[in-house]
Amino acid sequence: MDSALQVEKLSKSYKRRVRQPGLLGAAKSLFSSQTEELQAVKNISFSIKRGERVGLIGENGAGKSTTLKMLTGIIVPTGGTLEVLGRVPWQERRQLALNIGVVFGQRPQLLWDIPVRETFRLLKTMYRIPDDVYQVTYTEAVKRLSLEPLLATPVRQLSLGQRMRCDLAAALLHAPAVVFLDEPTIGLDLSVKEQVREYITDIQEKFGITLLITTHDLKDITETCDRLLLLDKGSLLFDGSIKAFEQKYASDRRIVAEVRKPVEAEERATLEKEIIKLGGTLKEAEGHKIVVEHREEGAAPALTQLLLSRLQVVDLNLEKTDIETIVTRIYRQPVGKD
């Protein structure tokens, strides 16, 4: 069995009771059953191989959590089919629960009233973790996530970040075949974020875990994943490697030069022609600043050489649009288009 996740034309729509404003409205809606439908996930298809590490991104309300809820079997899809480890999640939820690890960043996974260490012991029994595996995952978690000082504390007394670390450790304790992480770095400080990413990568490699992670911090994805899924208002807008994503959307690489004296008008015209010949465009040539943009990966050296030979360059910068910028730009577009 090669594929870990198989999703085919998956959809989910939520029904919402329509509420009119005001007290009278509230009274009316008690009796009327008027509902409106909200399509949170629209017809998405993808498949993930065993051992793959995939990031799922999309703006607020794009349908990421909804997708994860369907994949883990806690809600039932309204359309399409899905399989995780060869099982239909909502039909075999309890069996599947034994084989997956889940963190929903915003909710605590651990028992509220008992110390963290006790919860871990309970999970060891519940998930039947063999001693040798437990030895590895437990020690690794305690060491990597600095849990030692937290182990004796009841969960309700932990800070958000402390709790998140414990949750993550708990979700990976049984070295599950598939791990779903919904915003696992929410509310963590920068150094803990780094710790968490390293820990995830480490355990993933050690056990060949299949990883699906959603986040708003793209660094989580660039550091732990190879592949990217982009959801846009419930539809799958992109599915491919992170490199392919950059190539597709990072239209502009920029060369920004500062020159000693401003470029004259006719000089500018000839320069522009030559730049076009080399596969670039002259975006800006006002005053002392020159900006050249190009799409082709290999065009930078020739364009730089051109600028250096024609102008008295004082300072030079090569810029590439980073993935954050690309994603922000995509989110700003009114309707998801390429």
Partner: peptide, 17 residues
């Protein structure tokens, strides 16, 4: 090490309870 994929079974569930 390989990731684990145990099957549900009655006796071991009992231990959990």
């Amino acid at each position: 090490m390989r990731a684990l994929e145990p099957q549900l079974n009655f006796i071991e569930s009992f231990h959990s309870y």
